[in-house]
Design a binder for these strands. Structure first.
Length: 934
DNA sequence: CAGAATGAAAC
DNA sequence: GTTTCATTCTG
């Protein structure tokens, strides 16, 4: 059972929203979903948070129920489930179910590495089975640069520490005692759940925890408020969501504020602490921890349980939640802004940016006031109505969510109507979104600097290289911006600043966005952007692509809104970027004058909506609806918007997931093109993470977006994502002579097959290709190919690794025996193939030496997605910087993916692989272009 | 479900 | 020193 459940869960996770949605509809069935979503038919994998016991449980419950009733009112079920799950999680957390739930022991460095690179390996060697892949991974690991390795080791340690904190009593494995899981512990003090705060809290006191060392360090106390940024943001968001009451005081963060010590600790720690600390307060604490799915469920359920639900909301991670918040955002905007301001200030955010942000804020504020007032009024009304309908929904968010859900549930008709409504909604949304965007911008800027906010963004925080980000952004947007600039210049105030420095670029972008936002907000000004969008969209052939982009935009906007509040999920992060991008694109693409403020008429506003609507026939009507938008419709529209957003997102997530999976599957099976493309993409995504900034990988993104999983989870993921991912090429290179064979492990005798396989692989192809190009140092070049630009730089930092490290590394420890044995053997083999290294001794000397050259991180390769942008991104690359821009990339990447997907479906693919190593880029690029330009 | 890998913990 | 188990999935 347990296993099955986990997979199931995992599958859900993968699908996330989409799956959810489907489920909602009733189609569902996990398995089926997997099939659908995955397309390739791969198994659902569970990426999500397997290790999260709670999640598992919840999910399971959730799933089960869904399965059972599926169609019925999801909400109800969800509620039930949610309630159960939550309660259990929270309350029971500890003993809880014991067996299955026991937290999984934290992964060690190698496992992390494997997790992160397995996909790559698989891509490279589609034919290999996991075992083979594992072997290769082991080879890579062996070759991996000490420094790089250290990263993983550190991460593992951190992870472990956090884990331990969360589950003080956790015992790894009772070696002999198998009962470890539930039984032994009787109550098991250790729940192992990351999230379960209660547990931790409880556990902490009593237990000494396995390792005192860790314990002492970690105090429950929260990090400093300032540093807490992210958390504070979350909290705020949550509060905001809840009642929006006076969060201001909370800025610092409600409960857990305490130990400053933790401040320095890694986010994971903090989260752990927080979670633990939170646990005490109440049930609410769980919220955070609750899995995204769970949250969703709850939300969908309407928050049937007010109390229980609340907590969840706070987390606000879930996309839905955020979306809901978006709607509410209008209200909260002011509040948030003030908060943000505080937070930012406290953080000591950027001066310039802050200033700008302030200015913007002010502007917003003004406009916002007006717009917000109206909107608020509408929303309130809608909410009120909804409340009635929905019953007891306290939170607007919940309400909205419910509505959405309900909508989905209700009927196709409804959906259609909603769609229509959406148009109206769109108009509203556009406004909101704009406002949101403006806010977002602000928040983003500071956030980057700060550390905080975005859950994912956190990663970014640390990196000082905010500059890089800007650069990336610049580059990415430059194109569009370039155009804009001309226009923008015309824009008032800030124009001067914008360009001046790289930062200025970002700023400029922001600016443009803001300007747009302003325009939107200020009805007076009218959304220039909206117009633009409309045009763009209109201009768009109305093709699917076109249609999607608009959606995305909408989403992004919405997300932005949400961000403000929650500033959480990766999605959000993306969305902002996307938004910005989209906006920029739009702007550029659209009329230059747009910026200039021409009053938008409602109709125009409608246009965007129409865009979205284009897909459907009803587009024409939007205008009318706009009029109606007033009360209910606004709400409905909102819902619809949310719904769409969700769907779209879900689509994205699913697409990504598919892509990921698809790569594998496809890779195996067929089209090299796709594979290449996908692979690269995946890389890219992963790559972005490398820098340490948070990059989102597809998977993670997926996860994040949908789940908004527990903070810890998120943190973990973020961190995990941040871990550098190396391109296979690198390894190959490192290994070069030796390596490949190694990989094959079987090598001589056994497995030529692998090699042969490898050759077959895309990668191999690429490599070959690369090799051809740059025989000697293909590696770097390879990267280049993929990403072209940046790699080198990274690589450059050559590290003089001396052979020593190798030797030093060698020190086998622990399981060394096995290792030694195996390794020796392996090595021998390897040596045989390539060079002979001392059989016994340092096996890897050679490889290591080679390795020493650092592996270029794959990071940027992903950029390729966006082609144009890609290069830019690559630039960012070099130092594993924070890659703030990454998010943007990501978003772009996501878009690209989607586009690619579509293209694929269409069959348009540009010739993929044919080109050098850029297969993926190629295809994507066109797509992007289309999207962007159009 | 076994199994490939590594690492860490618990015996 | 040995045994478990963590992740990932194919066969």
């Amino acid at each position: 059972m347990t296993k099955a459940l986990p997979q199931f869960i995992s599958s859900l996770c993968t699908f996330h929203l989409p799956s959810w949605v489907t489920v909602m509809k009733g189609s569902s069935r996990n398995k089926d979903h997997s099939a659908e979503g995955e397309g390739a038919g791969k198994r659902p994998k569970r990426k999500c948070l397997q290790w999260h016991p709670l999640l598992a449980k919840n999910l399971v419950d959730f799933l089960e129920e869904e399965e059972d009733e599926e169609e019925e009112e999801d909400i109800d079920k969800v509620q039930l489930l949610g309630a159960d799950g939550l309660e259990q999680d929270v309350g029971e957390a500890e003993d809880d179910e014991s067996p299955e739930q026991r937290a999984r022991r934290p992964m060690n460095a190698f496992l992390l590495f494997c997790k992160r690179h397995r996909s790559l390996v698989r891509q490279k060697h589609p034919k290999l089975d996991n075992r083979g892949a594992t072997k290769i991974l082991a080879d890579w690991w062996a070759v991996l640069d000490p420094e790089e390795k250290q990263k993983y080791t550190d991460m593992a340690k951190e992870y472990k520490d956090a884990f331990m904190k969360a589950n003080p009593g956790y015992k790894w494995c009772p070696t002999t005692n198998k009962p470890v899981k539930s039984p032994t512990p009787t109550v098991n003090p250790r729940k192992k759940l990351w999230a379960s705060p209660s547990d931790s809290s409880r556990d902490l006191p009593s237990p000494k925890k396995a390792k005192t060392e860790e314990m002492p360090q970690l105090n429950f106390g929260m990090a400093d408020p300032t540093q807490m940024g992210g958390l504070s943001m979350l909290l705020l968001a949550g509060e905001h969501a809840l009642g929006t009451s006076e969060v201001s005081s909370s800025t610092c963060r409600p409960d857990a504020s305490e130990s400053p010590e933790s401040s320095q600790k890694s986010p994971l720690f903090q989260f752990a602490e927080i979670s633990s600390s939170t646990s005490q307060p109440d049930a609410p604490s769980k919220q955070c921890q609750a899995s995204a799915l769970f949250q969703f469920a709850e939300i969908s359920s309407n928050t049937s349980q007010l109390g229980g639900a609340d907590p969840v909301k706070r987390c606000g991670k879930s996309a839905l939640f955020q979306l809901a918040e978006m709607c509410l955002a209008s209200e909260g905007v002011k509040m948030e802004e003030s908060k943000l301001m505080k937070a930012k200030e406290s953080d000591g955010g950027r001066i310039k940016e802050l200033e700008k942000g302030k200015e913007e804020r002010e502007i917003k504020m003004e406009k916002t006031d007006e717009a917000s007032l109206q909107k608020e009024a509408e929303f309130e009304k809608s909410f009120g109505e909804n409340v009635k309908d929905s019953k007891e929904l306290r939170n607007f968010e919940e309400l909205q969510m419910d509505d959405i859900m309900a909508i989905k549930m209700e009927d196709p008709k409804e959906t259609k109507k909603e769609e229509l409504d959406e148009d109206q909604k769109c108009s509203h949304f556009s406004d909101f979104s704009y406002s949101a965007s403006s806010k977002i911008i602000i928040s983003d800027v500071p956030s980057r600097k700060d550390h905080m906010c975005h859950p994912h963004g956190i990663m970014i925080i640390e990196d000082p290289t905010t500059l890089n980000k800007p650069e990336k952004l610049k580059k990415k947007k430059k194109k569009s911006k370039m155009d804009r600039h001309g226009n923008d210049k015309s824009t008032p105030k800030k124009s001067g600043k914008k360009r001046q420095s790289s930062e200025s670029d970002i700023e400029s972008v922001m600016y443009t966005i803001e300007a747009v936002a302003k325009g939107d907000w200020g009805i007076e000004k009218l959304g220039e952007t909206s117009r633009k969008k409309a045009r763009t969209s209109s201009s768009g052939k109305g093709n699917i692509l076109d249609a999607k982009p608009p959606k995305k935009k909408v989403k992004s906007r919405e997300k932005k809104m949400s961000k403000e509040k929650s500033s959480d999920t990766t999605k959000e992060s993306r969305s902002p970027d996307l938004i910005s991008i989209s906006t920029s694109k739009n702007i550029s693409g659209v009329v230059p004058e747009g910026v200039k403020a021409e009053p938008l008429t409602p109709t125009e506003v409608a246009l965007p909506s129409s865009l979205s609507g284009q897909v459907k026939p009803e587009d024409s009507e939007p205008h009318r609806k706009i009029e109606t938008c007033g009360s209910r419709k606004s709400e409905r529209s909102c819902k619809g918007a949310l719904y769409k957003t969700l769907v779209s997102e879900g689509m994205l997530t699913s697409l990504r997931a598919n892509v990921d999976r698809g790569k594998r599957s496809s890779g195996k099976g067929n089209s090299s093109d796709h594979e290449g493309c996908w692979n690269e993409e995946s890389w890219t995504f992963s790559q972005s993470g490398t820098s340490g900034s948070k990059k989102f990988k597809k998977t993670k993104l997926k996860e994040d977006s949908l789940l908004g999983s527990a903070k810890l989870d998120e943190e973990f993921e973020k961190k995990f994502n941040s871990l550098p991912q190396y391109s296979p090429v690198t390894f190959d290179r490192k290994c070069v002579s030796v390596p490949r064979k190694k990989k094959k492990t079987g090598n001589m005798s056994s497995e030529p097959t692998k090699t042969s396989k490898g050759s077959g692989d895309k990668w191999s192809n690429k490599q070959f290709f690369l090799d051809a190009i740059h025989p000697a140092e293909a590696i770097f070049t390879e990267d280049k190919n993929t990403t072209e630009p940046a790699y080198k730089v990274k690589n450059v930092p050559p590290i003089p690794n001396t052979p020593e490290p190798t030797a030093t590394q060698e020190p086998l420890v622990g399981s060394q025996k096995r290792k030694a044995r195996k390794t020796k053997i392996t090595h021998l083999v390897r040596t045989a193939d390539g060079r002979v290294s001392p059989a016994g001794g340092t096996l890897d000397d050679k490889p290591k030496e080679q390795l020493h050259r650092r592996l270029p991180k794959v990071t940027e390769t992903g950029c390729s997605d966006e082609c144009t942008h890609g290069t830019e991104a690559a630039e960012t690359r070099s130092s594993t910087p924070e890659m703030p821009a990454v998010s943007a990339f990501f978003s772009l990447a996501a878009l690209a993916e989607v586009a690619a997907m579509e293209n694929v479906h269409r069959g348009q693919r540009s010739t993929p692989l044919t080109h050098d190593g850029q297969p993926k880029e190629m295809p994507q690029a066109p797509v992007l272009i289309s999207c962007a330009d159009q």
